[in-house]
Simulated scan of single mutants.
Amino acid sequence: MTISVVIADDQELVRSGFAMILDAQPDITVAGEAGDGIEAIAAVRGHRPDVLLLDIRMPRMDGIEAARTVCAETATRVLMLTTFDQDDYVYDALHAGASGFLLKDVRRDDLVHAVRVVAAGDSLLAPSVTRRLIDDMVSRRPRPAPVPSGSPSGPGRPGGLDGLTQRERETLVLLGRGLSNAEIAAELVVSEHTVKTHVSNVLMKLGLRDRVQAVIAAYESGLLQPGTR
């Protein structure tokens, strides 16, 4: 199956460089390019790509607003492009529904791998740098009050935690810590297949799009505090 991608960045050299790398892959095709958030939304609506590479800082409409619209309207998965040290908006982008982020100086192989991972329905959450970044973004904001059981909150306005079993709560905490399925299985002393079932149940019951939003929900529900490992 071919993965279709739209690339949105206001720097033409960045777009063309990413496009050249991705188009060279036998299983990836670049369906379109965009120079700002408005053009990105239009390109996604026109091409319905599997993945949108989306810069955070763009003219007319920034990547956060564009991600919010794309994630609300389509099944396209969003990968944000950031400079890491300079962008203070990565948490906002993840909260808008993005499935992860890439540094603009990403290596060729890592770019290709990221597109394939996100297109497959996973998120870029395993690297420790991602966990540190999410912790940092959460800690910069005033702590919300813990979510009462049964109350709507968080990404996608999931239901409260009452609907989760104890095992599913434990799984959500471990997701929030950025653990992989294999690591969660080791922690809970269960099979990876069982973990996949728990993860699917957590996402479904809380109305979450993916594991990234599960991390945010774990923090905003009060199950985890910034800096938790």
Rank of each mutant, 00 (worst) to 15 (best):
M1G: 15
T2C: 03
I3V: 12
S4D: 15
V6I: 08
D9Y: 00
D9M: 01
D10T: 03
D10R: 04
Q11A: 07
Q11M: 03
E12H: 11
S16T: 05
M20C: 08
I21Y: 01
L22M: 03
L22K: 00
D23T: 12
A24L: 13
Q25C: 01
D27S: 03
V30E: 02
A31D: 07
A31N: 10
G32L: 00
I38P: 01
A40F: 11
A42G: 12
V51E: 10
L52I: 03
L52A: 08
I56V: 13
I56N: 00
M58E: 04
P59Q: 07
R60P: 06
R60A: 09
R60C: 13
I64M: 06
I64A: 06
A66S: 09
A66V: 04
A66Y: 07
A67W: 14
R68C: 12
V70F: 02
V70S: 01
C71M: 10
A75N: 09
V78I: 04
M80E: 04
M80N: 08
L81F: 04
T82H: 14
T82R: 14
T82I: 13
T82L: 11
T83P: 03
D85W: 02
D85A: 11
D87E: 14
D87R: 00
D87M: 00
V90H: 05
A93F: 02
L94M: 09
H95G: 14
H95K: 10
H95P: 07
A96L: 02
G97W: 05
S99D: 06
G100E: 09
G100V: 06
G100S: 05
L102H: 10
D105Q: 06
V106K: 13
D109L: 03
D109R: 12
D110G: 14
L111D: 07
A114W: 06
V115I: 00
V117Q: 12
V118H: 07
V118Q: 02
A120M: 12
G121L: 05
D122E: 13
D122H: 09
S123R: 01
L125F: 10
P127R: 06
P127Q: 07
T130G: 13
L133M: 09
L133F: 06
I134E: 06
V138G: 02
R140K: 14
R140E: 15
R141H: 11
P142G: 01
P142Q: 03
A145L: 04
A145Q: 06
V147D: 04
S149T: 15
G150C: 14
G150T: 13
S151R: 15
S151M: 14
S151I: 01
S153E: 04
G154Y: 08
P158T: 08
P158K: 15
G160I: 00
G160C: 00
L164K: 02
R169I: 12
R169W: 13
L174H: 15
R177K: 11
G178Y: 04
S180A: 07
E183V: 02
E183N: 08
I184A: 14
A186I: 11
E187R: 15
E187D: 15
L188S: 00
L188D: 07
T197Y: 01
T197I: 11
T197E: 14
H198W: 12
H198N: 13
V199G: 00
V199S: 00
S200H: 13
M204A: 08
R209N: 02
A214Y: 08
V215G: 03
I216M: 12
A218E: 02
A218C: 15
A218H: 08
A218S: 12
L223F: 11
L224T: 06
P226S: 13
P226W: 13
